[in-house]
């Protein structure tokens, strides 16, 4: 059974008097525990699609089912609760909370979104920090660590609630190549260990090659789908 099903998914914006069709009639399915990449040039609709799958925006038409929930039907509060329960996010600019330590940043979703008991929270946060190789930096603040380290922390934060799906919008755009591969490796490792589905957008061709399935977007339309046989 698919984790994500998009049927005739469209999204249009009004830009002044101009109507911009960001996504047009997309149809695709993504299975659980996949490592998926959406590629395409700037303005192709990658971020818009990720926003729809992340319940941050609503489609203009069509349906989008995420884990058996029609996300277009969710109101603001329900969408927030759904994101907190089922989704994880990794941002291009890392978006760590500057006043929280590495440990607190990773624990934030458990504490402020899921109200997880302290013992369980501690266990999960430390386990993930260990997994992403940041356990020794747990007491540092975001401004005391490098960009690659920040993104590893962001990966841990996205995974700490055991989400079914992690969405990453250009997660390596602000990293050098070596660090970018390191972050992608961590994501793949976590996908293999936890069975989490990762969907990321990128226009870095080398990084794209790391995905199992690659969807190409151009002018809001899916132009190709490439399944990759090699194991992650």
């Amino acid at each position: 059974m698919s984790l994500i099903t998009a049927k005739n998914l469209s999204k249009a914006y009004a830009k002044g008097e101009l109507k911009v069709e960001a996504l047009r009639d997309l149809n695709f399915e993504i299975e659980p525990s996949s490592f998926v990449s959406f590629v395409g040039p700037s303005g192709s609709g990658k971020t818009t699609l990720l926003n729809l799958m992340g319940c941050l925006d609503k489609p203009t038409s069509g349906t989008l089912m995420v884990d058996d929930t029609d996300v277009s039907e969710l109101n603001t509060r329900m969408a927030a609760a759904f994101r907190g329960r089922k989704l994880g996010f990794i941002f291009q600019d890392f978006n760590l909370i500057p006043v929280l330590t590495v440990y607190e940043n990773v624990g934030y979703p458990l504490l402020m979104v899921q109200n997880t008991p302290v013992t369980e929270r501690k266990e999960r946060v430390l386990a993930l920090l260990e997994a992403v190789g940041m356990a020794d930096k747990k007491d540092k603040y975001p401004d005391q660590i490098s960009g690659g380290q920040k993104q590893r922390v962001a990966v841990a934060r996205a995974l700490v609630t055991n989400p079914k799906l992690v969405l990453a919008d250009e997660p390596t755009a602000n990293l050098d190549h070596k660090t970018a591969y390191m972050v992608i490796d961590i994501m793949k490792k976590m996908k293999n260990e936890l069975g989490t589905t990762f969907i990321f957008s990128t226009h870095d061709q080398k990084i794209v090659g790391e995905a199992e399935i690659i969807y190409s977007l151009e002018d809001g339309e899916l132009t190709s789908v490439k399944g990759v046989e090699k194991p992650c």
Partner: peptide, 16 residues
């Protein structure tokens, strides 16, 4: 604003 966007995106409810 970006921090607010981040915490809202990761599921922090408006009340919090």
């Amino acid at each position: 604003i970006r921090e607010i966007g981040t915490i809202a995106a990761i599921g922090t409810l408006p009340g919090k």
